[in-house]
Design a protein around this nucleic acid. Sequence first.
DNA 1: TTGTCTATTGACAAAAAGTCAATAGCACCC
DNA 2: GGGTGCTATTGACTTTTTGTCAATAGACAA
Lengths: 129, 129
Amino acid sequence: MPGGRGGGRGRGRGQGRRQGVMNFLRPCLLFLLYRGEGHGYSLLDGLDEFGFRGRGIDPSLVYRALREMEEAGWVASRTGEESQGPQRRVYRILPAGEQHLADWIDNLRRTRDEIDHLVQAYEREIGSR
Amino acid sequence: MPGGRGGGRGRGRGQGRRQGVMNFLRPCLLFLLYRGEGHGYSLLDGLDEFGFRGRGIDPSLVYRALREMEEAGWVASRTGEESQGPQRRVYRILPAGEQHLADWIDNLRRTRDEIDHLVQAYEREIGSR
DNA sequence: TTGTCTATTGACAAAAAGTCAATAGCACCC
DNA sequence: GGGTGCTATTGACTTTTTGTCAATAGACAA
């Protein structure tokens, strides 16, 4: 996603949107859950590995994504785990979510290859000038 | 862009949106113009190379993208070229557009690598189970 | 009580993307 | 001449996606 992986806050309300970032967020979250259950903020921290540096995304976006995936039946949650503040809502992946993740990874491979194709075509064009 | 590169028409008005597709469209168009000027429908056909199969995107989206890039100062157009129908509007890239394309390609490399990172992390996780 | 940190939810608003209508011009056929 | 099909472009309505920030809750410390 061109320009879609930048960090930092937007530039005011609704401007400078990083395109497709939520679209990458969901597979990242699903994968983190694949590795093990977690709650909102712990998953937010885990996103560091995928380019979302230093809580580089608004926490409410994480919660929205988790809620949507739960509504889709890919993950389930329970409340009750103690924390330093309010109780945590802990999410875990479901079999349907694992299947969806596998499909998503396939799509991501395809996407990666298509981006690569454009990059290489550009490099060839540059090299021939 | 997961699921965002599928072909074919959507499934009714506004449903089943292919996410981020316009976001990939613009660098593709800009690259095609980098290789040589063209008009709307010729560029639409040129997109075949990048996964937009068989005019796999609505022509009006191509024209919109071209218009926006012209407003941004990356490309310029002229009318007057004869066709089998109405006159064509032929687009060509400008120096600002070439610079923007170079930046965009850099971003795309980064995006490709970030997607690859997730894919590989998933494969490692699968392999260790 | 106030401040800070963890933790979650929600709603408004802007941006991005999709569909399809409308129009124009040429060639060909009946 | 009128109709059809193809090339070619523009536009507007609608839906979907994404970002910001407000609000609330609970624990702990000063």
